[in-house]
Design a protein around this nucleic acid. Structure first.
Lengths: 229, 229
DNA sequence: CGCAAACTTGATGTTGCTCAAGCTAGGTGG
DNA sequence: CCACCTAGCTTGAGCAACATCAAGTTTGCG
């Protein structure tokens, strides 16, 4: 789910709501939690007993095939929700990428809130619809885009998410990026090198990318093969 | 969205609710609609003015890249909903595959119903969550499965959807299947031929498939490369 | 019966994967 | 403070899976 719909509902300052105890029914049952890089929040198939909101840091959500092939369905950062699964079992695993702070809500209390707070279910529904729309775009990317288009989409998407036009902080490894795009580490690396040689980006460090030609990257991301140029 | 949550709510006989005019507030604003094969219900980017429930037939939902590459995000059949987009614009195009009967609900009335019917928003939310979970599985398929695994997943998935263990009616063309799996027509055809030669399936006609070795197909679909056999 | 659309099959091509080194950077201990 | 060490990244060579291009074949409909 997307964009602070829990804390924001009760406190206009996202990320601080849970620290004021019992200001609302929900906060009474919420608790802060920290995760070190690589730690698991919950695993695919677990019973969904809690809903989490990311306060700080970045989380990867992924699914595995039996032989270890991995696909990261989404990255979650500050203000975003994870773990809501009315069906019972979690559909994916959630792991901390860097140092992560989470706010945890008990499932039962969350459900009660949905029932008792007029308009809350509708807000969640709108968030879920938005997320579904994003999921469809990702299917298009995974099923029909080439490597350059995938990497360009990733760069533009992350930049938008971070709100910067130019500098782009990439806390995840190349392996994470590869598993997010349905590529291998090597192909991601090669594609970034190619972008660098073409002057589309610059790499300050592995984790810090500068977007030099946003126009061209957006063209690529959109799937315009663009014969000129 | 999934599984008759509109008509089923008001009438236990799915597909017949809209035919009894004004039995509920929603029906007062619903209307039946027919579409010939290939006809468009709505297009990606259109303002979402209506929500549709499939009464009969099958609909494909897809997204396009500028150069015509297509990815079918989902097939919809009897009892399933399409077109709910609170954000305003449709995220995908919807087209009839065969002769389709739809029940159309006005957006405004649908929204009013959400606000005024206790529990309705929650039901929709649960359906949306279920759909999200399916979307994640499709990402795994599109990003990490090979051609055989994809086709096997398609066969098992369609069989489950139709409720049959053995016979499988495939109203869509090979092109539709290919665009659903992120493959080409030729690869789908070759893979089906291979399955036939291996005794996993039999083709009565192009549109009618018999599942002979469900076990093995499910193994394949799950991604078990299975060295024995 | 004939036609067109859909499907199958074959030959060749290309993209991205695999395997295999090197390289770089950040953290640790001497 | 510096050298080492390791995890992560880059680069290269060869390869496999799937795409593309090109005929044929079947199917369903008028």
């Amino acid at each position: 789910m997307q964009a602070q719909f829990v804390s924001a509902r009760f406190d206009p300052t996202p990320g601080f709501a849970p620290r004021r105890p019992a200001a609302t029914p929900l906060m009474a049952v919420s608790s802060l939690q920290k995760k070190a890089p690589g730690q698991t929040v919950f695993s695919e198939g677990d019973e969904a007993e809690s809903i989490y909101e990311v306060i700080q840091g970045m989380v990867r959500l992924y699914k595995l095939l039996p032989d270890g092939r991995r696909l990261i369905t989404e990255f979650r950062s500050s203000g975003e929700l994870l773990g809501y699964a009315p069906e019972g079992a979690c559909a994916y695993t959630a792991e901390a990428i860097n140092e992560v702070t989470l706010c945890r809500y008990k499932r039962a209390a969350f459900e009660r809130l949905i029932d008792e707070t007029p308009g809350f279910a509708k807000r969640l529904l709108q968030a879920a619809s938005h997320e579904l729309s994003a999921a469809h775009s990702r299917m298009l990317l995974l099923g029909r885009k080439g490597a350059s288009e995938k990497v360009a989409s990733f760069l533009i998407g992350m930049a938008d998410k971070q709100g910067h036009d130019e500098r782009l902080e990439v806390p995840m490894t190349r392996a994470d990026i590869a598993d997010y795009l349905g590529l291998t580490i090597e192909t991601v690396s090669r594609t970034l090198t190619k972008f660098r040689q073409e002057g589309l980006i610059a790499l300050r460090a592995c984790t810090s990318i500068l977007i030099l030609d946003r126009e061209r990257l957006m063209e690529l991301a959109a799937g315009n093969t663009d014969p000129e140029n």
